[in-house]
Design a protein around this nucleic acid. Structure first.
Lengths: 247, 247
DNA sequence: TAGAGCATGTGGTCCAACCACATCAAGTAC
DNA sequence: GTACTTGATGTGGTTGGACCACATGCTCTA
């Protein structure tokens, strides 16, 4: 039996070598979602590196939403392959928003772009719209602010999913996640939350109705106004002084 | 002087604690792009954790494009804060494409969406267009396939930057990066690279001209056709059987 | 048969040591 | 005086070993 040991990697740091090995396993199909990585100690020995380097690689993959590490024994234990792009993109965006290199206004505008497109593209008979409708019904029964916002997130995600593009869905969710803390603080700026919540509910119903009637153009306009209106009311100033150029 | 030691974090893994501390420093402004983190050993002592945990946190931040670690002494050494959202999003997308949970078709369609929007929104006098023009001139002088594609990437990035939305630029770049390997293989499917390259050059000039004439609508259409056309010629089948619904 | 308790294997954490590298300062040769 | 050599210093990179907490499953016992 030949050895998997990889040497002569002077140009690459050891954990990146492990990373590349795992990525190759994924691309090649030897490793798929639901599958499990070898134990850290085993993998370290197989690749001829230290357990520390293996762990650093796994830490990165975990941050990327590609694996989940669980202690103990049994099916929940070990390092298993998952696929949660939203978590990865969300964390990355949030960090870069924190460094002030991604303006919140740009995040909001990108949300408008992606969600408008999703609303315009969603099929009236998409099954995700049923979930959106159910979430909408839940929102009617007087919730606390946090609960309402949680349902709101799921409603918007359901709409995005209805467009059938996994990348757009993931990016949409990550954008929302990246400014979640920011949006939460904004609610404090609102003059009257109950009034705002009522308006949001009404707008949600309009959006869903437009999609159901296959009026994608109107749905897109409504979504854009819905998102921009909320952040504007909460005090987020527009970055662009020429709104006429907005699509 | 009080201690920075953080204890009683039973619910959180140690490296996540370090991660949170650094993110707080970024949000609070104590750390900004260009700044340097304390040395690993120092930070470990300050937070009362092992150097291992500090290193795992730094590895994650590095993968997120938030810091860059350099050995040795001097200005290039140490762990300094940077901001490269594209790298982070690109790696994450590439990995999830590898797990087959993000279809390449969806990546391409999202590129069409973002780049069309950018082309429609770009101002005719945006300085980034000058760079795009210069790159276009470079492309004329017979290059190898790889060189041409490298210039092509920079041209498209320049166009995206001209729209003035950092989030869209970052996402655009990451999408391109995520399928870079895939796109490279596709060139082998082309019947005649020189013919294709000529067509791409002509389309680039048309796109740039449309933006310069402030005809955003036409620019968006040209970009969409440009991207879809390339991948279609190279053999990437459309995922949706109803192209009439495309925006 | 039902329960308690141990064996096993997983990731989580820490420590101590060593290496490679880049800079800078002190010393040395000319 | 100038130019070169040489060592000290401080950085991240890597390793091996040790121990812990946890979850499961087997085995022994009452």
């Amino acid at each position: 039996m030949w050895s998997n040991h990889i040497k002569y990697h002077g140009l690459m740091r050891t954990h990146q070598l492990v990373l590349r090995w795992i990525e190759d396993q994924l691309s090649g199909g030897q490793l798929a979602v639901g599958g499990r990585l070898p134990a850290e100690r085993t993998l370290a020995e197989q690749l001829g590196v230290s357990r520390t380097s293996v762990r650093e690689a796994i830490r990165v993959l975990e941050a990327m939403g590609v694996v989940r590490a669980g202690v103990g024994s049994g099916p929940e234990a070990g390092t298993v392959v998952i696929s949660d792009p939203t978590a990865a993109l969300g964390s990355a965006l949030r960090l870069h928003v924190a460094t002030q290199h991604l303006p919140v206004e740009d995040v909001v505008e990108t949300r408008v772009l992606l969600e408008s497109w999703a609303a315009a593209r969603a099929r009236p008979d998409a099954p995700e719209l049923d979930l959106a409708g159910a979430l909408l019904d839940d929102m009617d029964e007087g919730h606390a602010v946090d609960d309402f916002l949680a349902l709101d997130v799921r409603f918007h995600l359901a709409l995005a999913d209805a467009a059938g593009n996994a990348v757009v869905s993931a990016m949409m969710g990550s954008l929302r996640e990246a400014i979640q803390g920011y949006a939460g603080q904004l609610t404090a700026n609102l003059p009257d939350w109950d009034v705002t919540a009522s308006r949001l509910r009404a707008e949600h119903r309009e959006i869903l109705a437009a999609i159901r009637k296959d009026d994608g153009g109107r749905a897109a306009e409504l979504v854009a106004a819905h998102i921009r209106g909320y952040y504007k009311e909460a005090g987020l100033g527009p970055k662009d002084s020429d709104p006429a150029r907005l699509p």
